[in-house]
Design a protein around this nucleic acid. Structure first.
Length: 584
RNA sequence: GCGCCAGUAGCUCAGCCGGAUAGAGCAUCGCCCUUCUAAGGCGAGGGUCAGGGGUUCGAAUCCCUUCUGGCGCGCCA
């Protein structure tokens, strides 16, 4: 529903092309105009005054007012255009209703995007530091899938390294290690003890070597750690609604790094430096990228190179995204540059999607080694518990209250993580994570439930609805097209033209733009913000406009609008991982 | 020291590919449930858009610079 396009097309002439005009046209505030064009740039080009240009364009519209346009004015060098509200309303509402209650994904576009997110470490607890990458990545996966991409979610597990040797030492010495909590305690204890006893570290290294060599005992323990961790993590993923297509992590790439090193060698990219093998990046103003340690062992970058190449071969991606904290900015710039130097033309499709740092309120930093963590499952449990209490208080008879409490509580936590731009640092506050008022997930869910509540009444008395049985009540002349079970009667549009109502409709028309923008910028928050605007606007409409009333035509119009808001909210919420309960 | 990122209301943040009066939420204060869910709505107060230059008809937005904060800069990931 982008009428800027339409306007640009309309105004295009042999003097100015559509493409020149389009970037000049802006959304306006709905009062001075719906869409507007400051004419100063154009005036300079045409060597006329902006006032004159605006007037000429206005006259051009006035001469033959197109059906989508209501009025055009020239004010101080601005061309102000008002949309024909009825026309716009018909356009927008019809399109939304045709998509049905569950918007279908766009047809496949033959493009693949791989997304690396969450990427937890084995034998470490799932804490709030992992929340951002997990939900941002999970949301991006849904957004790209919705847009018709083949979206591949990859959990690049941290399942390799000396820490597993250390854990084995701890298990052998102190026992336990059968649950994630025990593993986490052992990990902390090990580091405490190792402070005074360095031989522990040596033993840890020895045990890790055994894992590498395939020692059955060591391997069995290692696998157990992995199993325990994944089982626990999968519970959290299920709660969050986050999914993966692959769990290929560090251990998966063990046998895939040697060929990469060889390739680097053959291309003459490796140089020796203090005993280590590096790729020099001086000409790109970056420090060298370490490929092999002086003892010949591989490094982080080596693994990421191997993983990127593997992903290209396995998935043939067009875009390869890494949802990883911004601390690793330099690392990814180096890796991508090395890929480019290796001659992979797809290196440009690799993108780091950075996000901010999570710290604990009061200044503490998260540290697994010190045991200074807030477990995600605890936060989620607290949120669900609180949601349950509120339901108990406000709506004790609610059916399925446990499920609703879960949707709302979890929704609050997820939404809190996905509402701000990725790049912002976060000081984690439980109070804020458990906030259900104002700009929160529950606010959106509440608005949706409010819509459903109205609709459940409207379906009894309204026209314009398909009943449960499938007949269309009072709609003999209406045509149903597309996937929706409801259609919009064009005659109803004149009931929805007041400012407050039209503002809701304007916002409804912006849904696809918001989703596209979110994908383009890898920012799920664009969608969260959009939904917030829509919900706020609907709530204002709701307070001032009674939907269920005696004027059946007006009621139908408002019911259909409410239906559209509900559907956009529900489908938008899905893209940012939130459920939309019908009642709460 | 060098590099990257950030600095907008008391707090958390939108707005940043230049446009006409800088917007939300939280917090504070005051209103609105005998009509569709008050997890809601309305109103009030609160801003040198970190400071200073510059470009432009027009700058929170672009450029330069200073300050403040975060992060990174070789054998961890």
């Amino acid at each position: 529903m982008d009428y800027k396009q339409t306007l640009a097309q309309f105004l295009a002439s042999d003097k100015v092309s559509k493409d020149e005009l389009l970037p000049l046209i802006v959304d306006s505030d709905g009062v001075r105009a719906d869409i507007a064009m400051p004419c100063h740039k154009l005036a300079a080009k045409l060597k006329k005054s902006p006032v004159m240009v605006a007037e000429e364009l206005r006259d051009c519209i006035k001469k033959a007012v197109p059906e989508w346009c209501a009025d055009a004015q020239a004010v101080n060098g601005y061309l102000n255009v008002f949309l024909n509200r009825e026309f716009y309303t018909r356009d927008v509402l019809t399109a939304i209703l045709q998509r049905g209650d569950d918007f279908p994904a766009a047809p496949p576009n033959d493009k693949t995007v791989t997304i690396d997110y969450s990427s937890i470490n084995i034998a470490k607890p799932f804490h709030i530091g992992h929340l951002l990458t997990t939900v941002i990545g999970g949301s991006l996966r849904r957004i790209f899938a919705f847009l018709g991409y083949n979206a591949v979610g990859i959990n690049h597990l941290g399942d390799w390294g000396t820490q597993f040797g250390k854990l084995i030492v701890a298990v052998k010495k102190w026992g336990g290690g059968d649950t994630i909590e025990e593993l986490s305690r052992l990990y902390v204890k090990f580091h405490e003890e190792a402070e005074n006893d360095d031989t522990l570290n040596d033993e840890g290294r020895k045990w890790f070597k055994k894992i590498e060599e395939g020692d059955t005992g060591a391997l069995a323990l290692f696998r157990k750690f992995k199993e325990i961790t994944l089982k626990e993590a999968e519970k959290v993923y299920k709660t969050l609604g986050v999914e993966f297509d692959s769990y290929a992590g560090e251990s998966f790439y063990n046998d895939k790094m040697a060929p990469v090193v060889e390739l680097l060698e053959n291309k003459g990219l490796l140089t020796e430096s203090d005993g280590a093998k590096v790729v020099d990046l001086k000409q790109y103003d970056m420090p060298p990228c370490l490929i092999l340690k002086s003892d010949g062992a591989s490094l982080y970058a080596t693994r990421d190179l191997a993983a990127a190449i593997y992903r290209k071969n396995a998935y043939d991606f067009n875009q390869n995204l890494y949802v990883v904290a911004y601390q690793q900015n330099l690392h990814f710039r180096q890796v991508f540059k090395v890929l480019e130097m290796m001659g992979f033309d797809w290196a440009g499709g690799c993108k780091h999607v950075p996000f901010g740092m999570v710290s604990l309120e009061g200044g503490g930093s998260l540290s697994t080694r010190k045991g200074n963590v807030v477990l995600l499952k605890d936060v989620l449990a607290a949120a669900v518990e609180k949601a349950g209490r509120i339901i108990e208080e406000k709506n004790p008879d609610l059916e399925g209250r446990d499920a609703v409490a879960k949707s709302v509580g979890v929704g609050a936590v997820i939404f809190g993580a996905i509402f701000n731009s990725r790049i912002k640092d976060v000081s984690f506050s439980l109070d804020k994570a458990l906030s259900f008022e104002g700009e929160t997930g529950p606010y959106l869910q509440y608005t949706y439930a409010r819509c459903r509540s109205v609709l459940s009444r409207g379906e009894v008395s309204g026209i314009g609805y398909k009943t449960e049985q499938g007949s269309i009540r009072g709609l003999a002349s209406y045509q149903v097209s597309g996937g929706g079970d409801v259609c919009f009667d064009p005659k109803l549009a004149d009931e929805l033209t007041d400012d407050q109502t039209f503002e809701v409709i304007r916002l409804l028309g912006g849904f696809d733009g918001a989703v596209a923008e979110a994908a383009k910028t890898y920012e799920p928050s664009v969608i969260s913000r959009y939904l917030m605007d829509l919900a706020q606007s609907f709530n204002r409409f709701y307070i001032d406009h009674r939907v269920i009333n005696d004027d059946k035509k007006m009621q139908s119009a408002r019911l259909l609008l409410t239906r559209c808001v509900a559907n956009v909210l529900k489908n938008g919420l899905k893209l940012v991982l939130l459920d939309a309960p019908k009642k709460m």
